[in-house]
Design a protein around this nucleic acid. Structure first.
Length: 707
DNA sequence: AAGCAATAG
DNA sequence: GGTTCTATTGCTT
């Protein structure tokens, strides 16, 4: 993250001094928009797109958790790097991605907060997205601190009930604006968009305590480019007549969102370094290098043309946990690290509520050259009995059973009989499936959204308390406070470990935060040299085995695997697996005592409270039981599956809307819905196929008796 | 379905 | 460009 907060306040000279391209470029722009008959969707140029970018997000989150930090120079530290800092620190010359030693030299009073654990940043990030989504579901996340929003519909409806067009004004800055006129209809729509942006920023501030910038423009590219013009905590409109300005003053092609360093290098090889050089470069030559679609897209980007839709992000498609380090070269260290990562990953997965169907392990090996971009991964299906343990909260057992799976993947990549040197390990769940195998409840709910469902009226009547605002767009934003607090009260914790910091509850933090401390300690512990404890057991004897391991099978395993199974972290996990095996296993643990292992025991962790992307049971239950819900107005005229009634959808609480959106995004097979979503890609074609049986035959687990 | 590259914050 | 810890999409097999 971080790059958007990167530049200090831009002095305006950069764009003020920018050369203004010739009129030829302007006409080229509009020509490219209506282009070679690729798009038939009406009015791509009339969209109103917002881009939100929180100010130094991690630092803001830490300052909310501890307000005393607001007055000091604050940096967020990950490993030996200051990844971001507050504005006080910036005045002292601290910038992002500075090394801790440099930063301390420059600013000895700099206060550093560890930021390797992203839990609370992630939580706050999703609160922002949820808040935006409660006004209009067309929200697309970009990292943790940015969101795009398509507010075209909201703008249209506000405009439709506007009588005095003379009173329309621009809210905030207007890029390169010298003569202020809100006369053209384009300007009117952007003007309305700027007021919506201001209201949303205010909502984010009042409800979540966060400040940020916004950009208002006609597409994502431009909204993103313009949003950082005035920092921090300001917003900027980009009018169409200034598109060439903003594109022309980018310092290089690398600055164009969508052009990474590989693409920039390839363009440079063609002699292209500036945006206008790309604008003037023949498309045919570009196609030779990049192929048709990519060439066209690059050229469009250079003109500020971007017809990509705001694609609702929904729930994340994967959850991963990783750690980097200077050196890891023994299997026991790897095992310990994997256990640590899995413990927190499984906990997160459980809170999410969905069922992971594939597991991936990735590593980064040390290499002096090209030290950065080398990651290798192996993945495999998650056996359903393990998935069950995750979703049902059998945390320990799930971890214990995942460890051999992960080690199997590890050995596919690393020949541990030779020396190795890893600098990173990542564990990841993907292919996330909503709700349990039965899916009965979601199936029932989902059916409400098909047209002509006889039960859809039950939904309507069950929550029609606040009908007054149903179609009254002007009141949309004003109703949010009610809606959100109602919904917040529905998200009731199951248990709450009282937090010492009352600030946390004020801002909606839950006991999940307390697990951070535990995890940080376990990370520290794992850094201490630890691999020695099992090196002494080269004479593996089967009488040490836990009860649920078949000694016959064990003897047949390769020695490497035997060592793994007997290593302290592994046995320690086993010990908590069941009461009956605890005696044996704990004796073994006592034979090889290890403080680090004890600290790693995840059983202290508090149980899940917050469900950022709940599996749905509670909310859906509430809807079905007719709990009072006040309803935020939503812009529902977006890409829904064809048999979904937008009217019905718009009347659902935001949580449920979100849930359904996420399900559509996941292309859940239960809903066989033809779609008009995302031109150029068939959204049903991607995932499909009810999981073919997991290829479990190679699995280490088969050597274990069922427990 | 698996693995990786590219892009992003 | 490269530190960190993620996350997504598209290409290739």
């Amino acid at each position: 993250m971080i790059s958007s907060e990167n530049e200090m306040e831009e002095d305006e000279s950069e764009w003020r001094n920018s050369f203004v391209d010739s009129a030829a470029l302007c006409s080229a722009t509009s020509a490219a928009t209506s282009g070679p008959a690729t798009k038939k969707t009406p009015g791509p140029a009339h969209r109103v797109i917002l881009h939100f970018d929180l100010d130094c997000f991690y630092a803001q989150v830490e300052m909310i958790r501890n307000p005393a930090l607001r007055e000091v120079s604050l940096g967020i530290q990950q490993k030996y790097i200051v990844v971001t800092c507050n504005y006080v620190a910036r005045e002292r010359g601290i910038s992002k991605l500075m090394s801790v030693t440099d930063a301390k030299k420059k600013c000895p009073e700099l206060v550093l907060v560890k930021g390797e654990d992203l839990t609370h940043y992630r939580e706050m990030s999703y609160k922002v997205t949820e808040l935006l989504m409660s006004y209009c579901p067309l929200v697309e996340r970009l990292g943790f601190d940015e969101n795009f929003m398509d507010v075209t519909e909201l703008v249209e409806r506000r405009l439709a009930q506007t009588t005095e067009f003379d009173s329309l004004s621009f809210k905030g800055h207007v890029y390169n604006h010298f003569s202020a006129d809100v006369k053209t209809s384009d300007h009117q729509r952007l003007a309305v968009g700027s007021h919506i942006a201001a209201e949303l920023r205010e909502a984010i501030h009042s409800k979540l305590g966060l400040t940020g910038c916004a950009g208002i423009a006609t597409n994502k590219l431009l909204a993103k480019l313009v949003s950082g013009t005035f920092k921090p905590n300001q917003q900027t409109i980009l009018l169409q007549e200034n598109v060439t300005d903003i594109m022309g003053c980018l310092s290089g092609l690398r600055k164009v969102p969508g052009v990474g360093h590989q693409t920039a290098k390839r363009l440079q090889a063609l002699g292209l370094v500036n945006v206008n050089e790309l604008q003037l470069y023949p498309l045919n030559d570009l196609e030779r290098e990049f192929g048709g679609p990519t060439a066209q897209r690059l050229k469009n980007l250079a003109f500020g043309v971007d017809d990509s839709p705001v694609t609702p992000t929904g729930a994340p498609q994967s959850l991963s946990d990783e750690d980097s380090f200077k050196k890891m070269s023994s299997v026991s260290e790897v095992l310990e690290k994997i256990q640590e990562l899995l413990s927190s990953l499984v906990e997160r997965m459980h809170k999410d509520g969905r069922l992971p169907r594939t597991f991936r392990l990735t590593i980064r090996r040390f290499s002096a050259t090209n030290k950065w971009f080398n990651r290798e991964s192996r993945q495999c299906p998650v056996p359903s009995h393990i998935g069950q343990k995750i979703t049902s909260g059998m945390h320990e057992e799930a971890v214990v059973q995942l460890i051999p799976l992960a080690m199997k993947l590890f050995h596919k990549m690393v020949d541990s009989s030779a020396a190795f040197h890893l600098t990173l390990i990542n564990t990841c769940f993907s292919n996330l499936q909503s709700r349990g195998a039965g899916g009965s409840r979601m199936g029932a709910i989902t059916s409400f959204f098909t047209q002509n469902s006889p039960r859809k009226f039950q939904i309507l009547s069950s929550q029609s308390q606040d009908d007054s605002s149903q179609n009254a767009d002007s009141r949309c934003l004003d109703h949010q406070a009610n809606a959100r607090s109602t919904i917040a009260s529905l998200k009731r914790p199951f248990s709450t470990k009282s937090s010492s910091c009352s600030e946390e509850s004020l801002h909606g933090f839950t006991s999940e935060q307390s697990s951070v401390v535990v995890q940080e300690e376990s990370q520290k512990a794992s850094c201490s040299a630890e691999g020695l404890s099992y090196d002494g057991m080269t004479n593996t004897t089967t009488h040490q085995l836990p009860l649920n391991v078949d000694p016959e099978v064990f003897k047949m395993l390769p020695e490497e695997i035997q060592k793994e199974l007997l290593s302290p972290p592994y046995l320690n996990s086993l010990s908590s697996q069941s009461a009956s095996s605890a005696t044996d296993a704990s004796q073994i643990s006592q034979n090889k005592p290890s403080e680090a292992v004890n600290k790693l025991d995840p059983s202290d962790r508090t149980t899940a409270v917050t469900k950022l992307w709940p599996a749905g049971a509670t909310q859906i239950q509430n809807v079905m039981e007719g709990d009072k819900l006040s309803l935020p107005q939503s812009s529902y005229d977006c890409k829904f599956p064809g048999n979904v009634d937008p009217e019905v959808f718009s009347k659902l609480p935001p949580d449920v809307q979100r849930e359904l959106m996420s399900e559509w995004k996941q292309q859940k097979p239960v809903m066989n819905i033809p779609s008009s979503r995302k031109p150029g890609r068939d959204w049903m074609s991607k995932d499909r196929k009810a999981a073919g049986k997991s290829s479990q035959s190679n699995n280490l687990l088969k050597y274990f008796k069922p427990s």
